[in-house]
Amino acid sequence: MRSLPLQVLLITGLVATAACSKKKEDLPPPPPPAATTTPTAPTTGETPGPVSSSAVPGSAADFQQQAGDRVYFAYDSYELDEASRGTLNKQATWLQRYGQVRITVEGHADERGTREYNLALGDRRANAVKNHLAAQGVGAARISTISYGKERPEVQGSDEESFAQNRRGVTVISGGAAS
């Protein structure tokens, strides 16, 4: 009879431990590897001049150099500003030149807000980019979207400059590009 209270105590401890354990959250897969770039401040509004490059035409590096791969959003917004539309217009021109290339548009948010809210906001941002590119003549079938919400920050930090660089849409070459 002594072992019954001990068994009850052990079972209670196991149940309590199981109840407190955290389930692993399902996150989207990591983005495909891309050429390393130095993040540019989204607030400057400046567009880079022509870049002489040894990048292979039609490659991901060529896309980044010729069109830019990211646009930035205001806090709690998925509206495209004038600078973002300019970048996306360059992307559309490049994508029309290389009609075999498929892309994935990633939507990102800063760390403020819940995980669920930021995943939804990232989705709206990715779709805003996709819709603009499609309106410029890029076939919607070539464009997929994914939201990473706040799960994959570009810059670590809890200040406005970091937040501004994390509120972004990133266009990633996902298939059909030159090596």
Score class of each variant (00 low, 15 high):
169 G>W: 11
121 L>V: 05
118 N>C: 01
112 R>H: 02
112 R>W: 04
103 I>V: 15
103 I>L: 13
169 G>M: 11
179 S>G: 14
136 Q>M: 15
179 S>Y: 01
126 A>Y: 03
116 E>S: 13
166 N>A: 10
103 I>P: 14
166 N>Q: 03
150 K>H: 07
164 A>L: 11
117 Y>H: 13
169 G>S: 09
141 A>R: 04
125 R>Q: 02
168 R>W: 08
166 N>R: 04
113 G>D: 00
162 S>Q: 06
142 R>K: 07
139 G>E: 14
151 E>F: 04
107 G>E: 09
136 Q>P: 04
165 Q>Y: 08
107 G>M: 11
124 R>Q: 09
122 G>Q: 11
161 E>H: 15
105 V>E: 10
151 E>L: 15
164 A>I: 00
156 Q>E: 09
179 S>W: 09
141 A>L: 04
152 R>Y: 10
138 V>H: 15
115 R>L: 05
140 A>G: 14
179 S>C: 09
162 S>D: 03
170 V>I: 13
142 R>S: 02
155 V>C: 14
107 G>Q: 04
144 S>Q: 12
131 N>S: 14
178 A>G: 11
105 V>M: 10
170 V>H: 10
140 A>E: 11
126 A>T: 01
175 G>R: 10
151 E>N: 13
158 S>G: 09
125 R>M: 04
135 A>W: 00
153 P>Y: 02
131 N>R: 12
142 R>I: 03
129 V>P: 14
100 Q>V: 08
159 D>S: 14
167 R>L: 02
164 A>E: 01
155 V>T: 15
171 T>Y: 08
134 A>E: 01
157 G>W: 07
177 A>D: 03
127 N>L: 15
153 P>W: 08
157 G>V: 02
144 S>E: 11
142 R>T: 04
111 E>M: 03
164 A>T: 09
175 G>N: 06
109 A>F: 02
107 G>Y: 09
169 G>P: 12
156 Q>G: 05
125 R>F: 06
160 E>N: 02
121 L>F: 13
151 E>D: 14
122 G>F: 02
145 T>M: 09
168 R>M: 05
121 L>Q: 08
106 E>P: 04
147 S>N: 03
178 A>P: 11
153 P>R: 00
136 Q>H: 13
140 A>Q: 13
175 G>H: 04
145 T>A: 05
122 G>N: 02
134 A>R: 08
145 T>F: 02
166 N>F: 07
139 G>Q: 07
176 G>Q: 00
168 R>D: 05
112 R>C: 10
175 G>Q: 12
178 A>R: 14
165 Q>W: 13
151 E>H: 14
172 V>Y: 15
114 T>K: 01
133 L>T: 01
130 K>L: 11
102 R>A: 07
163 F>L: 00
179 S>I: 05
179 S>L: 05
158 S>C: 03
113 G>W: 01
101 V>A: 10
